[in-house]
Simulated scan of single mutants.
Amino acid sequence: MMADRTRALAAALLMSLAPAAVLAQAPAEPAPTETRPPAKTLPEKALPEKALAETAETLPMLNSLGNVPGWRRYKTRFVTDQGRVVDSGNGRISHSESQGYGMLLAVAAGDRDTFQRIWGWTRANLMVRDDALLAWRWEPDKRPAVADMNNATDGDILVAWALAEAGDGWSDESYRLASRRIAVDIARRTVLFRSEGPPLLLPAMNGFSAEDRPDGPVINLSYWVFPAFPRLAAVAPEFDWDRLSAAGRDLLLRARFGEARLPTEWISMRGGQPQPASGFPPEFSYNAVRLPLYLAMAGVGERRYYEPLLALWADADQAGLPIIDTASGAVAGRMNEPGYAAIPALVACAVDGTPLPADLQEPAASENYYPATLHLLALTAANMRYRPCLGR
């Protein structure tokens, strides 16, 4: 489960051959200026992408989930008094991803006290680099607790997104400024804004570029947090976040491997043609399952983005969502906690208007951190964009 995701990232980071220089070529930063309101109708299905992007407006996240029992259980089980968000399925470590998810859910729940607690711990314990990015992993039984100073770009994006939501929702300029600082360094240090070809988002500063790996640059499509990009564009408008988002959507259509036509977790972009990256299992697994969640959260309803997943999930299996070996087409394992099933349900809602099953409208009390997080994010998306699927 989460251990698989962490091992994959750790393995990639260890492959780093040299420190990465600044990767993005972008304008100098100007003076600082800084993942549910009324019911939304279901998105149109046959719109061209340009029209779809215009109709899928950015919606405020504040109070979209509400202080529901699922959130109260979540913060009791996974958020310490100090504000550390605990990954219960992965040795009780914390990482920039868990902190970012916790901050987003606190905004969605309208829980400013918990948001501030999580942000305070994050700032004190993970913002220990020379830039505004976060160290990716904090281990409670190690000293120092941060042994690897590399970042994880998805965690940085989640934290910056949460701060932008909080800044707007609670009219707090300090949150907006913190979001801007992180967003600027994400763009400068982890985005390859190329003069020829679409931009690429690197999973971290070190370990994934063409200088670091023979098959580099290597990407992970689940690090494209699509609903975050409009918020980052608002706080750091000098970077072309729309182009980065469009590049990710295009890659989703191109990185379809094997008979199942699914993306692998780690993808080589050497030569511009996506291929499964060397040194990693060629699997659709715990990372990639977030892709349809992020698309639906961003209001993307076009069936073509979800087609292989709709086929994969057409016949529900009580054993859990399948992990697919894209090389052989075989089922390599199962994501067997119930929270994962909220993602296929959200996809069916976003694409076809299918109501969410009643048993998925409240997270199970026994779920680990990761499926519980994805479950609450799916419910947040449903409340923001797809309320008819909740019977509202």
Rank of each mutant, 00 (worst) to 15 (best):
A236K: 05
W241C: 00
P292S: 11
A234D: 12
G197V: 10
K142V: 14
V225A: 00
A330N: 14
P371F: 02
R72V: 13
N383C: 10
P263L: 04
G89Q: 09
E362H: 08
P38L: 13
T122H: 02
L251W: 08
S328I: 05
A20V: 01
L232D: 06
Q318L: 12
G83W: 04
P276N: 12
W224R: 03
A327E: 15
G83I: 05
E307F: 00
Q273Y: 03
T80L: 09
A26F: 01
L200I: 07
S94D: 08
D154R: 07
L65S: 06
V184A: 12
R180D: 11
H95R: 12
L376Y: 03
Y370S: 05
I182M: 08
L14I: 11
L295D: 00
A296V: 07
L158D: 14
A341G: 11
A378L: 04
L312V: 11
V146R: 05
A381T: 01
A332W: 10
W121V: 06
D4K: 10
G333C: 10
W224C: 09
D325A: 09
E29M: 11
P199T: 09
D359V: 12
P217N: 06
T190Q: 14
L312H: 09
M205T: 15
T58G: 00
A233I: 00
N206M: 01
I186W: 07
V235K: 04
L65Y: 06
D250C: 00
P281A: 13
V184H: 10
D172T: 08
D141R: 15
A56W: 00
G279H: 05
A11W: 12
T380I: 00
Y370Q: 08
I182L: 09
P322T: 10
K75T: 12
L13D: 13
P198T: 01
G100A: 03
A26P: 00
R290C: 09
